[in-house]
Design a protein around this nucleic acid. Structure first.
Lengths: 202, 202
DNA sequence: TAAAAAAGTGCAATTGGTCCACTAATTGTC
DNA sequence: GACAATTAGTGGACCAATTGCACTTTTTTA
């Protein structure tokens, strides 16, 4: 009568434990701040041993970033499933703008963002995780463009696009900044003299 | 009768201690490998307490990268003191190519490079240190171009240029790869259809 | 020459992370 | 349904990096 156990009890329990740990961690972090919470505190709160905790997460920072694979998948999807007639760079531009907007307007994520922004260790980790998507994005671009996976133009484009969120963090007008950098990527820094062509002279 | 103490004894001794620590560390690392050497080993070899060691270096990785300020200064100098008539991007291109060549051909640095390449913790640290120069390089570019320090085009250029060494690491023909990425930075990814313009088709 | 400044010491404590031998639940199999 | 192989979880000892603290010694400075 029950739904057939497509996924066994074991896996379900494992997932539950993992979730309990992640939940406990986030709650404590938000409450006390990242470095005022020890691994042992978290294990305690989730009622598991520290050994178990480390079987689910490779390190303390990883407790905070639980869903990076999803972000990577979205990135790839933005390239692969873009509307017909749209270029790769254009698709990435829209994806970057959209995700920035999503984060900025989602009030629930505010405290999460604050946590990361106020903790150097987490900022670093986030950045490292993010640029680690370079290989996957580069591969997706190469596939789509019909060139080899190790094509340098693809790798560079992937890396530079992934840099953009970091590059435009904390600006008065992030949207414009993102657009501007994408324009630069599209048209290049063609400076006949020594002058950079810039839109907002500030 | 002695040379006047332009720099006092204290500072000299301090510098000597620091150097002794760095030397001991490098020697041990090259001999045994990074993670088979403990901080205590190093302190012991340099004949100081671990407390003293940490007063000179903020962490274990920092023992290996002692001269990052010099690299940053070279970077800035490459922009500021470039030959008349040369553009900023051109100057950076030559600087990147030159430093890559310098490292690649200096046989003494080979074992050092091997050490870093074979130690994930050091690779990460190196990359982090390197991209930390973004702000300084960006400021230098902005000054030179006569725009505001927080100009986004300058920040983006600085960041992307600093990405190039890591982007082109371990390729069969790094020189060509570097040139190619600089070409892309100069002319942009102008893709009317979905096609990337690439020189080497694989 | 007195005293402020700063380098260095020794040691205990904290903390992230690993190791290992062991229990117990789950699963696949006959 | 019993049995053996997996595998999640345990608990606690253990390691190494890093910090804090109270203290000594040297150098500088007034």
């Amino acid at each position: 009568m029950d739904t057939p156990p497509v996924v066994g009890r074991r896996e379900r329990k494992k997932a539950a434990t993992r979730q309990a740990i992640a939940d406990a961690a986030l709650e404590l972090f938000l409450e006390r701040g990242y470095d005022r919470v020890s691994i042992r505190d978290i294990a305690e709160a989730a009622d598991v041993s520290t050994t178990t905790l480390f079987k689910h997460f490779p390190g303390k920072e990883a407790l905070v970033f639980d869903q990076e694979e999803d972000r990577e998948a979205e990135l790839i999807a933005a390239v692969r499933q873009r509307p017909a007639g749209q270029g790769i760079v254009g698709a990435l531009r829209e994806h970057v703008l959209a995700s920035r907007l999503r984060v900025a307007t989602h009030p629930l994520r505010t405290e999460f963002t604050d946590l990361v922004d106020s903790t150097p260790a987490l900022q670093e980790y986030a950045e490292r995780m993010w640029t680690r998507h370079t290989a996957a994005l580069s591969a997706a671009i190469a596939d789509d463009a019909g060139v080899s996976h190790d094509n340098i133009a693809c790798r560079a484009l992937a890396r530079f696009v992934l840099d953009i969120p970091v590059l435009t963090r904390g600006l008065r007008d992030p949207r414009t900044a993102v657009e501007e950098v994408f324009d630069l990527l599209t048209h290049g820094w063609h400076l006949p003299s020594q002058r950079l062509h810039v839109h907002n002279g500030d």
